[in-house]
Design a protein around this nucleic acid. Structure first.
Lengths: 339, 339
DNA sequence: ACCATGGATGTTATCGATATCATTTCCTGG
DNA sequence: CCAGGAAATGATATCGATAACATCCATGGT
């Protein structure tokens, strides 16, 4: 069934039907009612594909996240989804699996769907992709990290600074023998930036050779805790605090410690990153950096709606950088050393 | 830039360019190479919207899940995504928030994008929606539960039977004073079906008044554990086993018990449902029902690809029901009572 | 009474691809 | 040596909507 069928049944033109379906178009109230009634009765569903082709507006926003089953990103996607839904925008969601090549090829695939904006979770990009995006007039928003050289807009925080601040806070609370555990990840990835933040903090306080362990590629999960602890025990004995790249890993490490009969934080303290739900529920609660994935998603969606509202002439005025607040939260798993 | 620009530059017709972009079309190798080269050089991206309109194939599959930040569903979405990606199908993902009205309105919105299949997470549907879907020739797959009256195809298991079997297994291991904790949820929802399974098992063993507590609307999360335990303690004192609608809730309850100085399972046992990662990592590991969300996603995607391969004449042959295996897994949180 | 104004509606062209059928060329087997 | 068929390519119509402009009519200010 096409719009034309509705139009003919009522003896009006398709344009009138088309207008009846928008709120802002001028159609006589009785005409509109008759049309809406006919549409309802016959179960007509407008073809958004044809509408997109004609109006040159797809109603899509492409969203790329490293992973869909990481609570952080799924929360962000949730927020985007929710905000967009009220504006009839459909997110096209893709998962890069923490791989910049996958990211590049997904972006290409998405571009053919003519999205009205592109959201990338910053984790380092291929040079190729950067070039492709540089010459497009599509609004691009990088989220979840503040890159040193942004493509356009940014909604995020500095993972480096956040981890640096957490490390400093814990050093100031008396931990001297700190080990960092994270994935093998390059600079420019969120994971790599957190490690840099740790190193920076240690250097600032005169630790010339910060101790670090690596445990494979991102993402580190709760299940990696056992293996991570084994590496720490082997390579860095005598640590008084294990700092983990994320809360799930920290939780895994804590449980591994408990299995070995060690007490947290009495025998050894543990810290995480991200304020995942698990960090609040865990016993002991995990010292972490609070970030709010939902806010990142909502802020991003709102930014895109704003950009969209401006006529394309006004764009690009200048890249918008929205800083998301983070906060160090000292909890029971690493409360500071007793004096 | 349009396909025509590429065609004119090379002095061929757009059809030849169009053919060069498919693998199965007959184009002279040198012609194809020249075309692909030109496309690469100029950075031409085909317009999938126009292609969809013309070919009547959108390349979309609509997927509705109750929530995006529930690890179960995000894992399923992940699997769908992965399998579809290799076949150039783009999932349109929507979140119902466990609400059948939201589900119905999302389906309507999705239909206008002309998806080639529709995946619904079975949680009870509006009568309206059932009617709408009954008269469509779109393949519909309900996942995550086996409804008594399926719309078409099903990939899932019976939540009722799975919870019944877990309950029976635990009763046979000596628990006599069992309390069930779950959300307020109707029959036909996964949560409601699990409760029914519990009741069924109790009845089978002669418990005429199964003891149950409710704690608000789905989803129950780890954070609900504290409140859930409070309700159990108040309404059902003397329980020897708390059965939870899902693992995250079970984990929350266990932690709440620990906070009160109670030992699991010595003082009171706890069981969950779903084999979430947390149930394996937790101390004690949580007795649960193993289900594999990834398999559900992959199986669903494969089913859809199969259906799509058949010419539309062959459809609908008959609804396909794919049963997903589940298994009771007795772990340390409810190991059975010592004799 | 007249024209400017704006609301309601229609007409036509177009968005960018592909389906379909037609055409040409070249090869192969009887 | 020629009919028949496959391979390569082109011409045209079409997918289902909306943009843009045109038209008609009622209303009200002067």
């Amino acid at each position: 069934m096409r719009m034309r069928d509705i139009a003919e049944a009522l003896g009006v033109s398709t344009m009138t039907v088309s207008r009846a379906l928008r709120v802002d178009a001028s159609v006589a109230p009785e005409t509109r009612n008759a049309i809406l009634k006919a549409i309802e009765e016959r179960g007509y569903v407008p073809d958004q594909i044809a509408a997109s082709l004609s109006s040159r507006k797809s109603g899509f926003v492409a969203v790329l996240v490293p992973s869909l089953n990481n609570p952080h990103f799924s929360e962000t996607v949730l927020a985007l989804n929710e905000t967009f839904a009220t504006h009839r925008i459909q997110p096209l969601i893709g998962s890069t699996n923490y791989d910049s090549r996958t990211e590049a090829s997904l972006v290409r695939a998405f571009l053919s769907r003519k999205p009205e904006a592109l959201v990338l979770t910053n984790d380092g990009h291929q040079a190729d992709l950067r070039r492709l995006l540089a010459r497009t007039d599509l609004p691009v928003v990088e989220i979840w990290d503040r890159p040193e050289d942004p493509i356009q807009h940014v909604v995020g925080f500095s993972n480096r600074e956040a981890m640096r601040d957490l490390t400093l806070a814990l050093m100031d609370r008396g931990y001297r023998n700190i080990v960092y555990v994270g994935e093998n990840a390059d600079e420019g990835t969120r994971s790599g930036e957190r490690r840099r933040g740790f190193v920076e903090a240690q250097m600032l306080r005169g630790v010339d050779h910060p101790r670090m362990c690596s445990i494979g590629r991102p993402p580190a999960t709760m299940s990696d805790g056992e293996a991570a602890l084994a590496v720490v025990m082997r390579d860095c004995p005598g640590a008084d605090l294990i700092m983990c790249v994320s809360d799930p890993l920290a939780f895994g490490v804590i449980n591994a410690l408990k299995r070995r009969g060690l007490r947290v934080p009495e025998d050894i303290a543990v810290a995480g990153f991200g304020d995942f739900e698990i960090s609040r529920i865990a016993l002991p609660a995990i010292t972490t950096v609070k970030v709010d994935p939902f806010t990142i998603g909502r802020t991003t969606a709102e930014l895109i709606l704003t950009l969209r509202a401006r006529s394309s002439k006004d764009r690009p005025p200048s890249p918008v950088i929205k800083r998301i607040e983070t906060a160090t939260d000292i909890r029971a798993s690493a409360p500071g050393k007793p004096i």
